[in-house]
Simulated assay, not measured.
Amino acid sequence: MTNQDLRVQLQENLDEAEWDWLIPHAKRDAIIVVKTGLELIEVGAAVASDDTEKVGLWISEALITKPSIEEIGEWNRHRTKRFYTLIVQPYVLVKAK
């Protein structure tokens, strides 16, 4: 599969979800938060193609992170908070709306 084919497939899987729907994924430590400045499709393509250099750079710059205890607490208080989501097994990439 070419990078372009992968991006098209990921674009088709882009969705929205409320925090309440994402809690089961958070419980299995599968949520990755994508910060402002990065696109979900770009991150999803890098994760899916195992681009460790790019992903490592984003991690080191805190552009992709696991949700903090504070973020989870805030989202649990506002369970209808919505996110853009992209599933890239075994992860669920989320970006706040």
Rank of each mutant, 00 (worst) to 15 (best):
M1H: 15
T2R: 13
T2D: 08
T2K: 05
N3C: 08
N3S: 07
L6N: 09
V8D: 11
Q9T: 02
L10A: 11
L10Y: 02
E12F: 11
N13S: 11
L14K: 09
D15T: 14
E16Q: 07
A17I: 02
A17N: 05
E18G: 12
E18H: 06
W19C: 09
W19E: 09
D20G: 08
W21Y: 13
W21N: 10
L22A: 09
L22T: 01
L22D: 04
I23H: 06
I23L: 10
P24L: 03
P24D: 04
H25S: 06
A26W: 06
K27S: 09
K27C: 13
R28A: 14
R28N: 04
I31L: 11
I31N: 04
I32V: 06
I32C: 09
I32H: 00
I32M: 00
V33I: 00
V34G: 01
V34L: 05
K35S: 12
T36A: 11
T36Y: 05
L38G: 06
E39V: 02
E39I: 06
L40D: 08
I41S: 01
I41Q: 03
V43H: 00
G44S: 06
G44T: 08
G44R: 04
A45S: 15
A46E: 01
A46I: 06
A46R: 07
A48D: 05
S49Y: 01
D50E: 14
D50F: 07
D51M: 12
D51N: 12
T52H: 13
T52K: 02
T52V: 03
E53Q: 14
K54I: 03
K54D: 12
K54C: 07
K54H: 15
V55C: 12
G56E: 03
L57H: 13
L57W: 15
L57G: 09
W58P: 03
I59C: 07
I59L: 06
S60C: 04
S60E: 05
S60Q: 10
E61S: 14
A62M: 09
I64H: 07
I64N: 02
T65H: 13
K66A: 13
S68Q: 09
S68A: 05
I69L: 10
E70C: 08
E71M: 12
E71P: 07
I72F: 11
E74V: 15
E74K: 03
W75E: 04
W75P: 01
N76A: 13
N76M: 13
R77E: 02
R77I: 05
H78K: 01
H78C: 01
H78Y: 08
R79D: 15
T80L: 07
K81V: 06
R82Y: 01
R82C: 04
R82V: 08
R82Q: 09
F83K: 06
Y84I: 00
L86H: 00
V88I: 04
V88W: 00
Q89C: 02
P90I: 04
P90F: 01
L93S: 03
L93Q: 02
L93W: 12
L93F: 10
L93A: 11
V94Y: 00
K95Y: 06
A96G: 02
A96C: 11
